[in-house]
């Protein structure tokens, strides 16, 4: 596509207390059909969206955490997670679910989609984008 832009979806909210996370994911899924260069950022409470072992039966809401693992099939495989946000919430990299994609440029080798970056690196990532959608 001639009009390829760098899209960054910024996720800053925990997954179920508000609808932002779910409706952000809906934009990512629709946007995947537009063949843009897509990245996701997770910072502040947004890092809770990627935690493993989510169970939502008790609150009557749909658990959409598995959808993140499917995004690799739509060429959405750059998940930037801010290290400071994890640390501030007592989380470690091991608390997040494993999300991978198959690299078509490397004989479909399975690679991790999540990249852990510092707050300063996140600022650089944001400044490189054409379109930043913050949720």
């Amino acid at each position: 596509m001639a009009d390829t832009k760098k899209f960054l979806y910024v996720n800053r909210k925990a997954p179920y207390g508000t609808i932002y996370a779910l409706e952000s994911l809906e934009v990512v899924l629709i946007g995947a059909a537009f063949e843009q260069d897509v990245s996701l950022a997770f910072l502040d409470d947004g890092v809770f969206q990627l935690t493993k072992g989510q169970k939502t039966d008790g609150i009557g809401m749909k658990n959409f955490s598995a959808t993140f693992r499917a995004l690799g099939d739509y060429d959405v495989n750059k998940f930037y997670v801010e290290k400071e946000s994890l640390e501030e919430r007592g989380l470690t990299e091991a608390d997040l679910q494993e999300i991978t994609y198959e690299d078509e440029n490397d004989d479909w080798a399975e690679k991790p989609s999540i990249r852990f970056v510092t707050r300063a690196e996140m600022a650089d990532i944001m400044s490189e984008q054409d379109v930043v959608l913050s949720f």
Binding site: D3, K5, A33, F34, V131
Partner: peptide, 16 residues
Amino acid sequence: LGQLIEMGVQTDRLVV
């Protein structure tokens, strides 16, 4: 939602 993505592609600035 395609209209949102299309807008991001076609405009010079997207303001949220």
